[in-house]
């Protein structure tokens, strides 16, 4: 049996209370919501925070709020709910797809969207999809709050710009323009309970159903210390007419845009090749979706 070390436990009901606790305890405390990451690391002896602050009972953190062309998702929303809300399925299908392949149903019933972001794991499932739709994060502190684009949030494995006294409260996504399509594909060994060997999220927006690519995002996951944009690939898509040949070329560029390593899940060479394969596949699927197919 795996045991947990001892810690003090706090369970604020209000955001203000949580923030007060965090500004008092700072790095000696860890925030817990679903616990699927924090408790695993504690059981493995990787971390042993003096205190845990459970934010799961702060009700304002677990809703989805559509307003004025944006969708604002509470950080405490469990991943399974991302697959249940109609609005996510309809307006953010790429996030829906990513949520569907995270861990297992048992994990999705506890893990939260916020947890999947702040833990900053290089192979996390939700950040690539969220980066592809230009998500912003609302970070709340005791005295002030700020909005940070997700692109500026990650520093490296386990590291982000969030301060120990701040709490990620909401994930804010602007509704996507018409003729937009996206796709997220995760390559794992098994068909469930997997951490990605490579994952790619692509999103394109056309100027008209048969027009050129107005905007493009290609996010590569598990091939760098954090999820990254395939910069040259994205650039090469802009203003071009989408064709299989273009996607082929862009896929090769994407492979050059990443810096994979060899680890327990896969070799660097294979990962690079898979970036190309998945980029092409996700772009094709994104195109079909953009055209309303």
């Amino acid at each position: 049996m795996l045991l947990l070390p001892k810690f003090d436990y706090y369970e604020p009901r209000e955001m203000s209370e949580a923030l007060k606790l965090m500004s008092k305890m700072k790095t000696s405390a860890k925030i817990i919501a679903g616990g699927t990451d924090v408790l695993v690391n504690m059981k493995k002896g990787l971390i042993s925070p003096k205190s845990l602050v459970n934010v799961a009972r702060i009700s304002e953190l677990s809703d989805v709020e559509p307003s004025n062309g944006t969708i604002s998702i509470g950080s405490g929303l469990i991943v399974e709910k991302l697959t249940e809300f109609d609005i996510i399925k309809k307006k953010l299908p790429i996030l829906f797809k990513a949520a569907r392949v995270l861990g297992s149903p048992l994990v999705r019933n506890r893990a939260t969207i916020g947890g999947n972001i702040v833990t900053a794991r290089p192979a996390a499932d939700l950040p690539p999809a969220l980066l592809a739709v230009d998500a912003k994060l609302k970070l709340v502190g005791a005295k002030s709050s700020r909005e940070v684009s997700l692109d500026k949030f990650f520093i490296g494995p386990g590291q982000t710009v969030i301060k120990p006294t701040e709490i990620l409260s909401r994930i804010i996504i602007k509704e996507l323009p018409p003729f937009t399509g996206g796709d997220y594909i995760k390559l794992g060994h098994r068909n469930a309970l997997e951490i990605a060997i490579v994952a790619v999220a692509s999103r394109i927006t056309l100027d008209s159903p048969d027009g050129v690519i107005k905007e493009a995002r290609i996010i590569l996951s598990a091939v760098a210390p954090k999820a990254i944009h395939a910069v040259s690939a994205e650039k090469a898509l802009k203003g071009e007419k989408p064709t299989a040949k273009l996607f082929e070329k862009v896929a090769k560029l994407a492979a050059g845009d990443c810096a994979p390593i060899t680890d327990i899940r896969g070799g660097a060479e294979y990962r690079r090749a898979m970036v190309a394969a998945l980029t092409k596949k996700t772009l094709m699927n994104a195109l079909n979706e953009a055209k309303g197919k």
């Binding site: 297992s104 060994h189 098994r190 068909n191 469930a192 309970l193 951490i195 327990i264």
Partner: peptide, 23 residues
């Protein structure tokens, strides 16, 4: 698998993969 010190590197049922119902 083993790490460079001979310790099992994947001593979990997450990283040591037995088939799931979907495999």
């Amino acid at each position: 698998k083993f790490d460079p010190n001979g310790k099992v590197a994947n001593a979990t049922l997450g990283e040591y993969r037995i088939p799931t119902a979907l495999d």
